[in-house]
Design a protein around this nucleic acid. Structure first.
Lengths: 103, 103
DNA sequence: CGCCGGTACCTAGTTTGGCTAAGTACCACT
DNA sequence: AGTGGTACTTAGCCAAACTAGGTACCGGCG
């Protein structure tokens, strides 16, 4: 059911604080997305990079291999705004249906 | 972004009133899902039937070919409950992230 | 020194569930 | 006979999740 929302979520995370994939995974876990696979996140990051929604810089780490730090650019910010707008209308529609259902 | 939610929505619709595919499409259109393709709905109906979430009866129509009327069974109702539960937690998580984002 | 665990990233292949774009067929009405 | 609304079906595509690995860097420990 998550489909499509993960991208918006990750971009939103990156917009408040540019960071790298491994940390994003941890950030997601803290927010209830426990069973999002690492591979999913990395694939997603590749995708948003290819679409030009984020800028990337390599940053060395003292605890392991160098990190790819992603930061949201203008196009990405635009995407984020649209994402939350569509999320909002979808949530409203669903809420209306949920209220009307028989329980 | 709709992915996965359509099923729950359609099943919920069917749980309040058993009906056929063509009417479901209209029902969806009235509730903001204007651009859900007919093919999508019929494919979805086949899916939920194969999973045993609905029972089907053929009902003749005086305006066209006979209708396949779907009604939600116990298993389907269970699915609906789970669907709204997961939707709820997802919506809460998203809302929390949305509140926290920089605008 | 070697290896283990944590950090960090990447890939191939599959499944799911949308989409388009057709086609079929029934019926009423003109 | 043809048109338009009703009603269902199918084949094939694509995005985005998933599984299930692999690679590599680093510090610390025996």
């Amino acid at each position: 059911m998550l489909k499509g929302t993960l991208e918006g979520v990750v971009l939103t995370a990156l917009s408040t604080k540019p960071t790298h994939g491994y940390e994003i995974v941890g950030w997601l876990r803290e927010r209830g997305f426990e069973d999002v696979a690492e591979g999913t996140v990395y694939a997603l990051l590749v995708r948003i990079e290819q679409r030009g929604l984020v800028d990337v810089t390599r940053v060395p780490s003292d605890k392991g291999p160098s990190r790819k730090v992603y930061s949201v650019n203008d196009l990405g910010q635009e995407y984020i705004n649209e994402f939350w707008a569509t999320w909002d209308t979808l949530a409203n529609r669903l809420e209306a249906i949920n209220r009307g259902r028989s329980r």
